[in-house]
Amino acid sequence: MSEMAATRDGYGQALLELADNPKVVVLEADLGKSTKSLHFKKKYPARTFSCGIGEQNMLLTGAGLAASGYIPFASTFAIFTERAFEQMRNGVARPNLAVHLCGSHGGTHTGTDGSSAQSIEDLAIYRTLPNVVVMHPSDYVSTLELTKQLPELNKPSYMRTARNKTPVMYRGRESEIVIGKGITLRQGTDVAIIACGVLVSESMKAAEELAAKGINATVVDMHTLKPLDSDLINSLVSQCGAIVTAEDHNVIGGLGGAVAEHLVKNTFAPLEMVGVEDRFGESGQSDEMLEVMKINSKYIEQAAHRAIARKS
């Protein structure tokens, strides 16, 4: 079995590695143990601010720090960032202040905490905000690398991380990881699977199953949903002619929505979207949830067959 690690641990490690920059500060809302900002807090208590269980205040305290030359990293569960959505909209995105918000425990993969903790709409809502970069990395290494690039961004961001472990894919490939650039993990010409987060490894499994049946799939890790790597999507359309998107998120407004918006305006290809079908989750193990929600490798493979069948 390959190495497994949680993307939230990549975020925690990145904060430590960013600490040499004295302008980097961390804000917490009583979930630092979960989002993994606790390591930074232990080592740099003077640059860490507990905001108590108060997400709205956390976002705007971050905005004030950003307006004063600091680079704030604020985190809580993905679902609780949404409580401060208007603060993110009016206090952070609108004045374009570089507050970096991380929502951990995103998606139904979060598991047994149940539906109240399984954000399936975070990527959609943050994608609607001007100025905000939206990311959902798939593994420990890419989360680490993307987080480390944030201080150079000079605009606000939202990153979803996951609670549970996923395969580590990018050891030794750190230089390929760049905000806004999708990563092609596998080349094929029959269908392109564009995935994010925990469904990237599921998409790789689906591609192996397809290969056993003589179907060659491209797999892309689209860790940045906004700005979307539209050049890459255009090349996938001409190379494969059929697209599948895969995400642990509502099919409305997330990665599938972003790709669909691009396709209808540019170059047509049949698109099948694998995602949560507009319903809430429940308590269950991560693998059980991917099955209940019909978003694991089996369903991605089925979607690939449907997409290929729709090629004209």
Partner: peptide, 22 residues
């Protein structure tokens, strides 16, 4: 950038904390 009530005190808190760090 104001316009939504209830936001300025948190923002001011961030500005004040930044001053302290500086």
């Amino acid at each position: 950038s104001a316009g939504s009530l209830g936001m300025g005190l948190s923002f001011g808190l961030g500005c004040a904390m930044a001053a302290r760090l500086d």
